[in-house]
């Protein structure tokens, strides 16, 4: 097998270990401490924010306007699809107008 295939398989194995590992470690404890519980409940917001924040900081007018639109629509409608579509529409429109 080529080196590339070995790189891919090793990367796949390590990725799988991260996806199993957190659960394996946590399941060794019989009772989950309330602080751990609170921390885990914060995981989605914490991790997903880090995937948005640097992109938002590096973005221009169109990108910022798209994200602000997304936040506003999300607060009003609460639905994922309206938020996603309106935000993307603002982004594409402004990039064409400003670009």
């Amino acid at each position: 097998m080529s080196t590339t295939v070995w790189i891919i398989l090793a990367g796949a194995l390590l990725t799988f270990l991260t996806r199993v590992g957190g659960h394996v470690v946590l399941s060794r404890f019989e009772r989950i401490h309330p602080r751990v519980e609170a921390g885990l409940n914060a995981v989605p917001a914490a991790v997903l924010t880090t995937l948005v924040a640097p992109a938002a900081m590096n973005g221009g007018v169109a990108e910022t306007a798209a994200l602000v639109t997304g936040i506003a629509v999300s607060l009003v409608t609460g639905g994922m699809m309206p938020m996603f579509l309106s935000s993307a529409a603002v982004l594409i429109l402004l990039r064409h107008l400003l670009g």
Partner: peptide, 16 residues
Amino acid sequence: GIDFLLPIYFLGLVMS
């Protein structure tokens, strides 16, 4: 605008 679709999607998830 597809290079910025994922940040928008992730923002939607953060909001949810």
